[in-house]
Structure formats: structure tokens, C-alpha cells
Design a protein around this nucleic acid. Structure first.
Lengths: 228, 228
DNA sequence: GGTGTACGTCGTACGCTGTACGATAGCCAG
DNA sequence: CTGGCTATCGTACAGCGTACGACGTACACC
């Protein structure tokens, strides 16, 4: 049998393969289930081999987060700014819903990766080109990102994923914990929510559109800002 | 020497004391620095003693989060809804800025504690009394909480805390990483931000007021909703 | 062909983690 | 005095991240 060169793309380790498998593991088992030994095992390698592609577990986590940012669509350039921001925001929410562990990780990780920077640059460019003055673009950035991240955080901490699960859990778990005399308004809300159905994607765009509309007046509409 | 009864309030353990010291430790050293042994050590007790007050570390983390919610001011009842929501939101941001680890923890913790529930009930009550229909109150809740949590998350992941640190780090760290030809808009933003100064509290209320104003039209102004 | 060097791989070991289990000691009711 | 209850903790175990050093192979050079 030949030296395994052909199978290198299958069995050979690489930083990409390591990080990608780490994503899969974290998606499947949560970030607490991700250990260097388990990751190595599911790559068919010894634990210490990973350290030739990744300096430490911290660096691995940073790389994983940046992959999540790679999955987020950049704001398209050919449409109006609201459509562009809506597209990238919806895409961001989807990516964070696919990888809920990423949100919890962000708090402790302070240096942005390249995909993160590329994303920020594209968003800022979109806002500036739409006529937002520099500082207003910063404000808009903070507000939009706050909404996206906060929504994803809340969505991740929901104990149900579908409208059906919501209905079931409301009946079996929530209401028993919420005495009607102590929490009248939460009871009312729960009932209304079950009746109306629940879709996180719809909820997201509802708030998003409010935010976008609120930002519109911050533009300086007529004048085109010169590229610095 | 007598049996230690008098010093019980000093040295005696209690669930409150355990959780409070856990907060202090997490604030000082980050949530990764919080281990049962270290916590027990700083309480002058053995590690296993903690398990008489807390079923597991997971339960301890849940309890810690609920303490953070206790620190958040409830919306006052005697003012208009916007002022009330502004007060509680500002208070929430402050609490989360004091305990940044709490944000990262929320993603993985799915069952709300009593202080959390009390808080949600009070906020929902405030919105309903202000004239928001049931489902609109839910939307408003999502939007407001998303903004608060998302802002706190971004603030926690900033590598600087003051305007001075921002200026220093921009010069020494950020700009060297941001080639002007690849990231023209981020360079422009960084420069403007340094020039204008930076205050997270101001940034927060700027976006918050936009959100509150955007929510105003969702009220059904005249009619007072009956308490269910 | 022979040899030196660099690289990728991994076995072992160390200090840490959460916590199961059982022992101990002080307390109060009978 | 006796028995049980509560609070405390010592020990032990499996698993963690990773420092260290050994090993085989691949390739550059003479």
C-alpha cells in the first residue's frame, strides 16, 4: 500500500478541519461538551496533536467564533440601506441560532477575528454610504448589533424551539410555576402567546423593522459623504 | 474558648453567604476563576461543605444570576411608561456591567429564577398599564430586553473601560491591526470616536431613547386595559 | 546513498476541576 | 445515656488543559 498521500485530505489534520470539527461538536453537545480529548478523538487523533494547529483552547474558541462570523452574509451593496441591514441582520440571527454557544462565548473574548473585522467594515461602509454621519453610523451600529446579539441571547435561553413546544411547556411547566394571583400579567401573556403562535424569525423582524425605521431620521439624506 | 455561636454570623455558612461570595469571586476573577474549592477557601470552609447549601455548581450559577436580577430596579409605577422603562433599563445595564460574567451565563441557563420572574411581571405590568395590547407588550418586551442584553454583551466584550483606555488602545493596538486601505471606514470611525470621547452610559441611553420612541405608536392610547 | 534537520504525532504526567461517598462531631428528644 | 439529625469535611475518582520530551517520517544537501 502506498504512502497515504491521497487520503491526506480525508485523514490529515489541518487547522480548518480541527476548527470545523470543533464547531460540529459544540453544536451537537454544547460548548461544555467540547474538550480537547473528545475533539481529537472525533478526528481520529491524539489530544496533543491538536496543539500543532491551535496554540491553546482559548485560541480554538476564538477561531470558532470567527467561523460563525464568516457564515453571516455581508450587507449587499446594490440595495437601499434598510434592505441591506435587514438581510445581514436576519442572516446574523440565523447563524447565532445555529450556533448558540457562540453568544455565550463572546462575553469573554475581546479581540475580534478577521471575519468579524470584515463584517464590521462592510456594515459601517453601508451606513456611511447611506448618508449617516460618522458618529451617527457608530450609534446605529451599536443599536443594531445590540438588538441582534440580545435577541439571539434571549432566543438561545428559551427552553423551547417551536410553537408546539411552547404550547406544551406553557401548560405543563410554566403555568404551574406562575400562580395567577402573583403573576397576572405573565399569565395573560403566556395565554395570548400560545393562542397566537410563536415564531422567533417573525418576532425578530418585527423589532428589527422598528429599529431600522427609528434610525432613518439620523441620516443626512442629500449629501454624499466623501470616502475618507 | 466558647463554642462559636456568636461568630456564627461571621463564620457560619449559609446559602446567602455562599452565593454572595461567589458573586464577589466571579466579579474579581471572572467566572472561569470561580471553582468550588476556591470559593470554599475564601469562605474558610472545606469544598464539600458548600454542597449543603447548593445542590451543584449549576444551581449555584443559577442562584448567582438571580442575585443579579435582584439588583435591577423595577420600573417605578408613578411615572409615565417611558421614564419607567428607562429607569429599569439603565439599572439593568449597570447591573450587567458590574457583573459581566452574568451575560455569558444566560445563554446556557434556561429556567428563570424568582427575581427574574418578578422583574418580568413588573415590566409587563408597566407596559400593559401604559396601554400596550397584550401581543404588543410582548413585542416591546422582546425589543427592549434584546437591546439591554445585547448592549451589555457588547460592552462586556470591549477590551477597554474608559475613554482614555480607548484612546490609548486605538493608537497602540487597533490601528496597527487595521490597514487603512482595507478598513477605511473602521479607521474613520475609530478616529472620530477617539476625538469625540466615549461613554457607554451615554451610548446606551441614546439607543434606548430611539427604541422607546419607536415603541410609543404601538400603544392603544385611550383605552385602559382591564386587569385580567 | 548517506546524513542532518525540521515537522507532525502522541504517551505520559502534573495540577486542576466537580462531586460521590462515608466518616465525624455537636446537638436535641426520648 | 441513647439514637437520630444536621453540618462539616477528608478522601477518591474521572476528566480537564497542556508542558515536556520521544519518536518516526520527509526532505535538503553533500
Amino acid at each position: 500500500m502506498r504512502k497515504q498521500r491521497q487520503v491526506a485530505s480525508d485523514a490529515g489534520l489541518s487547522r480548518q478541519r480541527v476548527v470545523a470539527e470543533a464547531l460540529r461538536l459544540a453544536d451537537r453537545e454544547g460548548v461544555d461538551g467540547l474538550s480537547m480529548r473528545r475533539l481529537a478523538g472525533s478526528l481520529g487523533a491524539g489530544a496533543m496533536s491538536l496543539y500543532h494547529y491551535v496554540a491553546s483552547k482559548e485560541e480554538l474558541l476564538d477561531a470558532m467564533i470567527d467561523v460563525v462570523f464568516e457564515e453571516i452574509e455581508l450587507p449587499p451593496e446594490e440595495t437601499d440601506w434598510q434592505s441591506a441591514m435587514r438581510r445581514r441582520s436576519v442572516s446574523a440571527r440565523q447563524a447565532l441560532a445555529r450556533h448558540p454557544w457562540a453568544i455565550g462565548l463572546m462575553e469573554s473574548r475581546t479581540s475580534p477575528g478577521p471575519a468579524n473585522l470584515r463584517h464590521r467594515e462592510a456594515v459601517t461602509a453601508c451606513l456611511r454610504r447611506a448618508g449617516f454621519p460618522v458618529l451617527m453610523a457608530t450609534h446605529a451600529n451599536w443599536l443594531l448589533d445590540s438588538y441582534v446579539y440580545g435577541f439571539a441571547l434571549q432566543e438561545a435561553s428559551l427552553p423551547f424551539g417551536t410553537a408546539d413546544e411552547l404550547a406544551d411547556m406553557t401548560e405543563d411547566v410554566f403555568l404551574p410555576q406562575l400562580p395567577a394571583d402573583e403573576f397576572p400579567y405573565l399569565n395573560e401573556s403566556a395565554a395570548a402567546l400560545v393562542a397566537a403562535g410563536y415564531d422567533p424569525a417573525e418576532e425578530f423582524v418585527f423589532g428589527l423593522d422598528l429599529v431600522l425605521a427609528a434610525l432613518e431620521p439620523l441620516r443626512a439624506p442629500a449629501q454624499r459623504p466623501p470616502l475618507p
